[in-house]
């Protein structure tokens, strides 16, 4: 089974330390939330794990391969990505965007065939986009476009998914929709790493929370074990109250 591992990963950019000695393992069937203040290095950690940037020291591996230097097609078949910002340079239609998810399997837009067609159709249905198949991307709401990207990533059937603040700029229902889709994807056997700013969403959907601050991992573990008032104070410098009710955890906080 493919595992993503970061070993002693440190990253310096122009002399500034961005990541400091990170160790992290991601497995299938687990949704890991990456939380921490702005500038903690969450996005950089994700980029190292995805192979988009190479660590200054240490190793980031996808399976047995070095993430940054491995074959791009092989990497795309193992790890999908949901961007924080969803630019659409051209008003392409939903179906064509989802079909790009099969890029690493040789499918171009609308030239998708056989297993590519099946995977695209399945991903479109799984994300509730059947009615939007022929819609142009520039006519979609932010929440709809976020779901289109989910379908695009799911269509690849990659064992891992990286989600970079996908809930940003979405309304509450849109945030829940997207995270539920990722949760279902993980329950179907994938592994996922999601950068989240909302502790309540992390508490609701994640199996494990990785707490970051100033380039380091401060703690990691299941929400019920690691969400505490003192941790929220340490990491975010807020005065928090943690509520436990019927097995669910919720957090309120103020400055």
């Amino acid at each position: 089974m493919t595992v993503i591992t970061l070993e002693n990963v440190s990253l310096d950019i122009n002399g500034a330390g961005i990541l400091d000695n990170i160790d992290l393992t991601l497995r299938a069937g687990e949704l890991v939330a990456l939380v921490g203040p702005n500038g903690a290095g969450k996005s950089s950690l994700m980029k190292c794990a995805l192979g988009a940037i190479a660590p200054t020291t240490g190793r980031a591996r996808i399976g047995d391969d070095d993430a940054a230097t491995m074959d791009v097609t092989k990497r795309a078949r193992l790890a999908g990505y949901l961007p924080q910002i969803r630019p659409t340079a051209w008003p392409v239609i939903v179906e064509d965007i989802v079909a790009l998810g099969r890029y690493a399997y040789g499918a171009t837009t609308t030239l998708a065939r056989n297993e590519n067609d099946t995977a695209v159709a399945a991903a479109i249905s799984a994300c509730g986009l059947d009615n939007l198949r022929q819609r142009r991307a520039d006519t979609l709401s932010g929440g709809e476009l976020a779901r289109v990207h989910c379908a695009r990533a799911f269509a690849a059937n990659a064992p891992f998914l990286f989600a970079d603040e996908v809930t940003n700029s979405l309304d509450p229902a849109g945030q829940l929709d997207v995270l539920q889709l990722i949760r279902d994807h993980v329950d179907n056997g994938a592994g996922a790493l999601a950068i989240l700013h909302d502790i309540n969403l992390a508490a609701t959907f994640a199996d494990r929370i990785v707490w970051m601050k100033k380039g380091r991992i401060h703690a990691e573990g299941p929400p019920r074990d690691t969400i505490t008032a003192s941790r929220l104070n340490d990491i975010f410098a807020v005065r928090a109250q943690v509520h436990h009710a019927n097995g669910a955890i919720s957090v309120t906080y103020r400055k």
Partner: peptide
């Protein structure tokens, strides 16, 4: 030609799709 379609979704997404 093919990479250009993927690039329409942004460079990071294109990279993750397997574009060199």
């Amino acid at each position: 030609a093919r990479p250009l379609s993927a690039l329409g979704l942004g460079e990071e997404t294109a990279l993750s799709l397997g574009v060199d």
